[in-house]
Design a binder for these strands. Structure first.
Length: 849
RNA sequence: GCCCGAGUGGCGGAAUGGCAGACGCGGAGGUCUCAAAAACCUUUAUGGGAAACCAUGUGUGGGUUCGACUCCCACCUCGGGCACCA
């Protein structure tokens, strides 16, 4: 008998696996494939429990499928561009590359110490030019396809990070990275036109049945599809007479068009300045513009905020009834949604209602609930009634139209009969059309930072902005930039000054780099063919290995990374680079790891690192514990005692130690500490043990397939308990040797994906099996032998369990029923038995009255 | 405000509409020991009872069903996402 010594075992096997390249994907075409992937980490240098959990889940999945005979691709890499490297560089006077590569080295060693089964030959480092050059290549392909645009528009600016941000990277008005309130700026920037895929990104969520509904819902909300119409209002001149010019609005409620009593423009709308220039209205309008400009994103995103407005002195004509509506400017109208102009219907929209009350603008009822007393009064009224409203709120539910000309009496509301009819009428006159709008904005990908992938574009005075020719890739990020002293790419003449690739005259390079999220939007494709020097990847290889079968990562990427990656795949498909629609088949979003109920963060100084638990109990114990404590998608609270220990962890170590001894005993070794056998029915225990083994193999197999690792481990514990009960009533000579041997090999294999070092040592050394447990065949359950000869069934009387009976598994229902009646005789005596339901193998339900 | 998700012992959690609480932590008692640790055994939802057993019990209130943690309706609480998107 050997003591279970995790440290000696783990370091030994890790060295062997490393040396043998044990987890290399051999691209064996004869096997079915599984691509198991965990979101690659940012190399911050330290591993925390969130990493441990995420990568342990993925590793268990990968190891399970290897044993099931799949060709498994399970790679790991580093999302290595980004701001923390620059900040660290400034702080420590290092180059960002130095800091990054040193961190990668440390973190890779930590990962190896956990025994994760990665194909390290396929490692991708996002800041390696062999990788980022292909990010530039994809940029050029997208550009060719018309999916890249450089334009001036209002953007989010993070003053702390000194760069612009994409919409998705602003969380509640704050920078996703540093938490600073972002500012609005009007800048010329580079965009990926993700909005062209808005509809497909929304529709294809239905093709992802294996994604959590939560994530799909979040993406659907983010894309934010609204069906409605555009309506053209005619602009009037200073004298109030109609001109030829129209101002278009977007609305989801065309049915309320008769209720429009004023008209709104966003402060940034191009028309505003023209309308008020030199008029007496200019000053008050400018004030509103000023307020809008200076509001921070945090202020703008607050719920009940004050709305500011000013009259422009001008009017538009409502195309449906010829009403003249005053044009106001207000900061609650957004420039970059719809057309930046809005028809205001205070009776049907709460914001318009409040604005009307504040500024004394008229309110005209158009849609009412059928029983509203106003309905009666308004029926047959010819003159339009305005302001006869004493409600507290606008009425935005479904109802019936009043005061709406020929449409009066129709059903109104979102997507209503009246909406369709009014829009049709406008369309006939060429003054309106059905339109679908999305909340999703184009992806702003340029960043005013050094440590990122250079955008391959050149600014030429004569030719404009031109792409770097494909053969000139990569545009290498120069390494001699002194970030710590504030140098930027523009300060490096050898980078900045280049001849124009079109005309050959002096030009200069684009100095913005790409958003790091562009690096993570396609890395999962590169793993399939990481050493390709001609292309980002070989198309046949990608088409064979993708989509990723199991993708595992944090919920914080529900929108960001997961939406961008979906867009990339669709855009690359349209560029002819691959042939599928969605990158990730099955998505598991693991829950957060907290410490005593609190989120871990560096600033709080409560980040739990795996080093201490590993030093105490080894990696296998930590892995098994993390998987056992909670189902993967739920949050996991790491409870720490005052001395830093964790009780559950010790319990898991005891379990591995106990099963280690169990396996050795089953294999025929004598346990000097074994208790003296006690009396018991040995044959019955043997039969029950064999049955239990098959039952547990079946359950554990199903649990791995559905990633219920906690119940998989629990099932092995049940098997261990049953085994122990058998060993307790037998001496070595009394045992069924063949069953014991089989059981030993089964227990080892069932736990191998979770505790790989423990299993490898038992498998190859203790049990003396040929070959690694990694490639050992997964045990197969014999469903017949998992069945018991006799079953215990519950007997219910009127839904309450009153007795238990033991019946033969093969017993006929009639037989079972009469046994059941006998067992509950005292409960049904003198009663009228109305019905008896027999659920074979489960229970008998007797209904009496 | 809109949209998701979740409410089960002291704790983490388990239950294709079929015996609620598997498995584990913690607790209590015990074996071994001079003693302790380790290991092993028994026990552990609540109330009543010496016990067999009885009653109650999966956030609340209804409903469907022979039977509901599970399905339906309404509500409460917590967590998350979006948020002036017309």
């Amino acid at each position: 008998m050997r003591t279970y010594d995790p440290h000696e075992i783990e370091t030994r096997w890790q060295a062997i696996w490393d040396e043998q390249g044990a987890y290399r994907d051999t691209e064996d075409l004869s096997k079915p494939k599984k691509y198991v992937l965990e979101m690659f980490p940012y190399p911050s240098g330290d591993m925390h429990m969130g990493h441990v959990r995420n990568y342990t889940i993925g590793d268990a999945v990968a190891r399970y499928y290897r044993m099931r005979g799949f060709e498994v691709l399970h790679p790991m890499g580093w999302d290595a561009f980004g701001l923390p490297a620059e900040n660290a560089a400034i702080k420590h006077h290092l180059h960002p590359a130095q800091w990054t590569y040193a961190n990668i080295e440390t973190q890779r060693n930590s990962f190896k110490r956990m025994g994760f089964s990665y194909d390290w030959d396929r490692t991708i480092i996002a800041c390696d030019k062999d990788y980022y050059r292909w990010g530039q290549y994809i940029f050029l392909k997208f550009w060719e396809k018309g999916l890249v645009e450089r334009r001036r528009s209002p953007v989010n600016w993070c003053p702390t990070c000194g760069t612009v941000l994409a919409n998705e990277q602003v969380i509640e008005g704050r920078c996703w990275r540093c938490g600073t309130s972002v500012e609005r700026r009007d800048l010329e920037q580079w965009y990926y036109k993700i909005t062209e895929y808005a509809q497909e990104l929304l529709d294809d969520l239905d093709k992802l049945p294996e994604w959590p509904t939560r994530v799909k819902q979040m993406q659907a909300n983010w894309i934010g599809r609204s069906e409605g119409g555009e309506v053209d209002f005619t602009l009037c001149d200073e004298a109030g007479a109609p001109t030829d010019e129209v101002v278009t609005v977007f609305t989801t409620r065309p049915d309320t068009l008769f209720g429009a009593t004023f008209f709104l423009l966003a402060p940034e709308h191009e028309l505003v300045a023209r309308l008020v220039k030199g008029t007496s209205y200019e000053a008050s309008v400018d004030e509103v513009i000023d307020i809008a400009e200076h509001a921070t994103a945090v202020e703008r995103s607050m719920g009940d905020r004050e709305r500011h407005g000013a009259f422009t002195g001008r009017y538009v004509v409502n195309p449906i009834n010829g009403d003249r509506l005053p044009i106001w400017v207000s900061d609650y109208v957004m420039t970059d949604y719809g057309t930046g102009a809005v028809m205001a219907v205070p009776s049907g929209d709460q914001r318009d209602f409040e604005f009307a009350r504040t500024y004394g603008l008229p309110i005209s009822p158009v849609v009412l609930a059928e029983d509203d007393r106003l309905m009666g009064r308004l029926a047959g009224v010819r003159e339009r009634i305005v302001d006869d409203v004493d409600w507290e709120h606008a009425f935005d539910a479904e109802g019936v139209l009043v005061q709406s000309g020929e449409f009066t009496g129709m059903r109104g509301g979102k997507d209503s009969e009246a909406s369709t009819a009014i829009l049709a009428k406008l369309a006939e006159q060429g003054r309106g059309r059905a339109v679908i709008n999305f909340r999703l904005r184009d992806w702003l990908i340029s960043r005013q930072r050094y440590w990122g992938n250079p955008i391959p574009a050149i600014h030429c005075e004569h030719c404009g902005i031109v792409p770097v020719p494909e053969e000139d890739l990569p545009v290498e990020l120069p390494m001699d930039i002194d970030v710590a002293n504030g140098e930027t790419l523009a300060d490096d003449p050898s980078f900045y000054n280049v001849p124009c690739p079109v005309c050959g005259r002096p030009a200069h390079r684009e100095t913005d780099t790409m958003d790091t999220f562009t690096c993570s939007s396609w890395y999962f494709l590169r793993y399939v063919d990481p050493h390709n020097t001609r292309l980002p990847f070989d198309r046949t290889k990608v088409d064979r290995m993708l989509p990723v079968d199991h993708y595992i990562g944090g919920i914080e990427h529900a929108i960001l990374h997961l939406l961008y990656s979906r867009f990339f795949v669709k855009a690359m498909r349209d560029c002819g680079m691959l042939d599928f629609d969605e990158p990730f088949e099955h998505l598991l979003t693991q829950g957060m790891v907290t410490l005593n109920g609190e989120t871990m963060s560096k600033s709080k100084g409560n980040v739990v690192a795996p080093e201490q638990p590993i030093a105490q109990y080894g990696a296998d114990t930590l892995r098994a514990f993390m998987l056992f404590l909670a189902p993967p998608e739920k949050g996991l609270d790491w409870k720490e005692n005052d001395d830093g220990s964790n009780e559950g962890l010790g319990a898991m170590f005891r379990y591995l130690t106990r099963t280690w001894r169990l396996v050795e005993t089953l294999h025929g070794e004598v346990d000097p500490d074994a208790p003296v056998p006690v009396e018991g029915d040995r044959d019955a225990a043997r039969d029950e043990l064999e049955r239990k083994m098959h039952e547990v193999i079946g359950r554990v197999t199903d649990d791995y397939a559905s990633m219920s690792f906690n119940t998989a481990i629990a099932a092995t514990m049940e098997l261990a308990n049953t085994t122990q009960a058998y060993l307790r009533i037998t001496t070595a000579k009394q045992r069924d040797v063949r069953l014991c041997e089989e059981l030993a090999s089964v227990i080892v294999r069932l736990l191998a994906p979770i505790a790989p070092h423990w299993a490898e040592e038992l498998w190859t050394v203790e049990l003396g099996r040929a070959g690694s447990v990694t490639t050992a065949p997964w045990p197969v359950a014999d469903a017949e032998r998992a069945k018991a000869a006799q079953l215990e069934m519950a007997v219910q009387v009127n839904g309450k369990v009153r007795a238990h009976i033991v019946v033969d598994a093969e017993a006929a229902d009639g037989m079972v029923e009469s046994m059941a009646r006998e067992a509950v005789a005292r409960w049904i005596e003198g009663m009228d038995v109305k019905k008896v339901v027999v659920i074979p193998g489960k229970l008998v339900s007797v209904v009496v009255r």
